[in-house]
């Protein structure tokens, strides 16, 4: 019996903490994508809480009532095969719950994968690449590059282009939204945005070996004006990023924060073209076209990059 009370106490503790004074990072979002995931999480917690309460109530009631010490000596439990009606009930209700959560999932998944809506400006494109055990951020538009820290304007969608100079890493800023993998042979896109100026922590969430634990970075979100000033200042003061310097940065190890003008994208382009190789497997999706046309399509798409 003790365990049930222990469990219930713990659940209430968790519930208090989740809703309580010190908000957990994931449930304290600072941008539209993070807000969507936080909402989904809270919806699922409450839905599941209902399930847990029902099961626990039934469990406590049954185990208390039917314990042997509560029964007469000569009580012979009956033989019951089952009940079609009841079994249909506890199949149908979970099906409804799952259907509800499925709708929530599909809608929210499409939402967090897309560019956040409601902003007038075009997304700011930032290339975020990981190497053992650092993060490199390239701003092609602003022509600057930072290591292990990230400045972003608020109220503007940010389109991260993720890839890796090493093992699979996972780019994650808990307060802005979910994570996504950065891999060596392709570029992934992650759409985020920040509404509230402030400093947030970001990290690599996918294990990459010895220095993994410290592969973190700081994010500072600020109004567009401040951001522009920062860009101007960097362009005026920072040293240019040379190929040699970048090679040096890539070496395994930990580094502090640093800033450069120019980006490594010019001499070490992201692996965007590579995935096209895989993509030409598309001929299995659109089998209508002949081999020749397929080849042309591939060439065409290569020219775009």
């Amino acid at each position: 019996m003790k365990i049930k009370w222990a469990l219930l106490t713990l659940i209430f503790t968790i519930a208090t903490v989740l809703t309580g004074c010190e908000p957990l990072l994931v449930l304290d979002p600072k941008g539209p994508q993070g807000r969507t995931t936080a909402d989904v999480i809270m919806i699922s917690i409450w839905t599941m809480a209902i399930v847990v309460v029902v099961v626990f109530a039934l469990y406590i009631f049954i185990v208390r009532k039917y314990r042997a010490s509560n029964q007469s000596e000569d009580y012979e439990p009956p033989h019951i095969e089952g009940s079609l009606k009841l079994e249909i009930v506890w199949t149908a209700i979970p099906v409804l719950i799952v259907a509800f959560l499925s709708v929530v999932t599909v809608v929210s998944t499409y939402k967090v994968e897309a560019t956040p809506e409601g902003y007038n400006e075009e997304p700011l494109v930032i290339y975020a690449s990981s190497s053992n055990w650092k993060w490199h951020f390239s701003y092609p538009e602003q022509n600057i590059e930072t290591v292990n820290y990230l400045f972003i304007p608020t109220d503007r969608p940010i389109e991260f282009k993720l890839y890796s100079y090493g093992p699979i890493s996972s780019f994650w800023i808990p307060q802005l939204g979910g994570q996504k993998y950065a891999m060596a042979d392709m570029v992934n896109t992650l759409n985020l945005a920040a509404d509230v100026p402030g400093e947030y922590s970001g990290r690599n969430a996918n294990f990459t070996g010895e220095g993994f634990a410290q592969q973190t970075f700081n994010v500072k979100a600020m109004p567009q004006k401040e951001f522009d000033e920062w860009v101007k200042e960097i362009n005026a003061t920072a040293e240019p990023l040379t190929e040699d310097k970048f090679e040096e940065l890539l070496k395994p190890g930990h580094l502090g924060q640093s800033t450069y003008t120019g980006t490594h994208l010019t001499f070490s382009p992201p692996p965007e073209g590579h995935h096209e190789k895989g993509d030409s497997g598309n001929e299995e999706v659109q089998p209508g076209s002949s081999k020749k046309e397929q080849d042309e399509e591939v060439d065409h798409s290569k020219m775009n990059h």
Binding site: H275, G278, D279, G281, N282, E284, V285
Partner: peptide, 9 residues
């Protein structure tokens, strides 16, 4: 596998 790694990607 094809859906995950190629078609749906």
């Amino acid at each position: 596998t094809l859906l995950t790694l190629i078609w749906g990607y």
